[in-house]
Amino acid sequence: MAKGKLTIDSEKCKGCELCVNFCPKKTLELGKETNTKGYFPVTVVNDECIACGTCAIMCPDSIITVEKE
């Protein structure tokens, strides 16, 4: 069960994958559908988030909000 809840502002995501690269639980991956700018925004793919906040710290566009149970 996920300890953390990620809220992602998909419209502002540029799909740079820095969050994907640094997530210790491999919770994030790029989605299959584009946003209006044509990028593939990041999505949550499993429920192993531990709310460490690493993805949010490394996100250059500050689009990830992390909450902990």
């Binding site: 709310a51 996100c59 250059p60 566009d61 902990k68």
Partner: peptide, 27 residues
């Protein structure tokens, strides 16, 4: 739920004009 990380209030809502993955955004 406790907030672990949230966008700083000292940043506006404007989307950054930097290229994808540019670390200017982190700084």
């Amino acid at each position: 739920m406790a907030v672990v990380y949230k966008k700083s209030i000292a940043l506006t809502d404007a989307p950054l004009t930097y290229c994808p993955g540019c670390t200017h955004g982190i700084i």
